[in-house]
Design a protein around this nucleic acid. Structure first.
Lengths: 248, 248
DNA sequence: ATTAGTTCTTGTCGAAGTGACAATAACTAG
DNA sequence: CTAGTTATTGTCACTTCGACAAGAACTAAT
């Protein structure tokens, strides 16, 4: 974020940036040991310049002249993870006066969901200034640059609300998945345990999930049936397309 | 929206503007005759310059250098209606490339709820370029400048979702109100009729509404009991304050 | 082969919520 | 005093949801 002429800019409207909160599902760790459950993780970028040099921050940057907001968010995602989003949605526009110490910045923030990285894909991004952190770890959040801790907290809250009536879950998963995996997603997002029987009944009723004839083999116990998602696979929910026809 | 030096700006990031969709409750009219119900209305501003000169548009304008996004939205509201908002909330940031024919504009849009204007207050704003229109009138929406029809439709949709679990209703009303008035609000927002008995039961259970000892007199029939709102009266729901404590 | 252990899957029961609708209460207008 | 209208309460069937029991299907150990 550097400008040819700073004094010129300050007279004009604030700088416009786009940042992206990227969530993925990974094995939960406590003290380096896996708990057997999953939890939410997000990639952060270490700042190489002032302000907040050396601290971790959300991936983001200024909006290019002929770049859609979504395109900018997707670019953040690609630069950080090398992945294409399976879900990308606008979170909020943060416009406080003192979010950045020097130049005022208005940030339009998106949140994205990606599937768990394959080890090979992770190797593609070998940047020491990019790393993944547990999204609910207070120590991580407190060390973030700018107001990014607040942004992540709000993203977590919105994610928890969205998952209730949406079919966000399968965005974290692959083409085929077990109901137990879907439950893991919900438990990570909602941050509480769910009853398997009731959860299964709920899925049968509402979500666009269809059983297949295949089973997940190789486990240590009864093999679970595999399901697949049959609903909308659009990556970006646009306000225009979200509105039902009769609302006009 | 004029700038000292247009060519300078176009090299830099897009212009940033704040617009506000303002809703209020008024008597529904069909063919100039009141139906006895209420419906949603919104104020629009006639454009006096190109582009879209002469057409109606949402109140809005560029973001001032040291002005919060909410402040800008509240300023829109005050300039158009002379009123202070009883509810103000961020809707969405619209950043399409060709929203405006010439200079690219990114608009951060808020939606506001105000109580029905008193006739005196209406007279305070005697601007022929400001007028109120039915929010669900397709003819009105189709004639709007820019992409504002899309924005209003999205605002209506969001309003309908929000009212479900929120206590938006009383923002349209005064300090004391009858349950029938609350029902009118819900019917206007959801755009469908509700059963009075069930609606009343629902309110008893969830919303922060408390009966008073007073009754609304002067009606033609049995006088209804007056209620009052006991919940949160904060005007602006901030993301930071929206997040519950355990989400961090 | 049998048994124990774990996960997967279905079923049951009561509490709570919701839509449809009947019935009573309380006022005004004639 | 009666009819008309709105306000308010109550009832009943249906659905939803949390808690929990129980059977099904596989692996691993004996």
């Amino acid at each position: 974020m550097e400008f040819a002429n700073v004094s010129e800019r300050q007279a004009m409207s604030p700088e416009l940036a786009v940042s992206t909160v990227i969530f993925s599902l990974r094995d939960e760790l406590v003290g380096g040991q896996p708990t057997g459950r999953k939890s939410l993780w997000l990639p952060l970028v270490r700042r190489t310049r002032q302000p907040f040099r050396g601290q971790w921050a959300l991936p983001g940057g200024p909006l290019a002249a002929r770049q859609t907001l979504q395109d900018a968010a997707a670019a953040n995602l690609r630069a950080t993870t090398g992945l294409a989003p399976s879900h990308l949605e606008q979170l909020y526009a943060f416009g406080g006066l003192d979010r950045s110490p020097s130049q005022r910045v208005v940030s339009i923030v998106y949140w994205a969901l990606v599937r768990e990285e394959h080890p090979e894909a992770a190797r593609l991004i070998e940047d020491p200034n990019v790393a993944w952190f547990p999204a609910r770890d207070e120590a991580v959040l407190d060390a973030l640059a700018f107001d990014h801790a607040e942004i992540v907290s709000y993203a977590l809250w919105r994610l928890g609300n969205k998952v209730e009536y949406g079919s966000i879950a399968h965005r974290f998963l692959g083409e085929r998945f077990t109901l137990a995996q879907v439950q893991e997603v919900y438990e990570a997002v909602l941050d509480r345990r769910l009853d398997a029987a009731n959860f299964r009944r709920h899925l049968r009723g509402t979500a666009d999930i269809e059983p297949t004839d295949e089973y997940l083999l190789g486990g240590k116990h009864r093999p679970p049936r595999l399901y697949r998602y049959t609903g909308d696979t659009a990556v970006v929910p646009d306000p225009a397309s979200t509105v039902p026809a009769d609302s006009t």
